[in-house]
Computed example of a mutant assay.
Amino acid sequence: MKITVRYFASIREAIGAGQEPVQTTAATLGALRDELIARGGAHATSLARGRAVRMALNQTLSEESALLADGAEVAFFPPVTGG
């Protein structure tokens, strides 16, 4: 399936792109994250397991178990604090 992956804040800076189309066989957000980590380089460093990374599916904060569908928009971003 084809999805759009968007990157924000420090993840965007590390990867060097705000978004990209991705062809994937991943069924869940967690599986997609693992596919992107397997690319190596900035993807592996920015999305690595053990790093705090939030995910959204179609603009809704989601857990790694959320199911992907063709045409979905996925966003990865670091936790945000503010006051």
Rank of each mutant, 00 (worst) to 15 (best):
L29W: 01
V53S: 10
A31M: 09
A72T: 04
Y7P: 06
A75H: 06
D70W: 06
E35T: 09
G18Y: 08
A52W: 11
L67A: 15
A52T: 13
R49Y: 11
M1V: 09
E13F: 01
G40F: 04
R39C: 06
E73V: 15
A38Q: 13
I15S: 00
A75C: 11
S65Q: 14
A26P: 09
F77S: 09
D70N: 14
G71M: 10
L32P: 07
F8K: 02
S46G: 12
G50T: 11
Q23K: 02
L61N: 11
A9Q: 03
V5N: 00
Q23W: 05
I3Q: 00
A48G: 02
I11S: 03
E73C: 06
G40R: 08
T28H: 04
E35C: 03
G30K: 02
Q23N: 11
A75T: 07
G83K: 09
L68A: 10
I11N: 08
R12N: 10
R33Q: 15
R51K: 15
S10W: 13
A27E: 12
Q23I: 04
A72S: 14
A75W: 03
M55C: 12
R12M: 11
A27F: 00
G30E: 12
A56E: 03
A72V: 06
A14P: 03
A56L: 14
Q19L: 01
A42G: 04
A17D: 03
L68W: 04
T60D: 12
L57H: 00
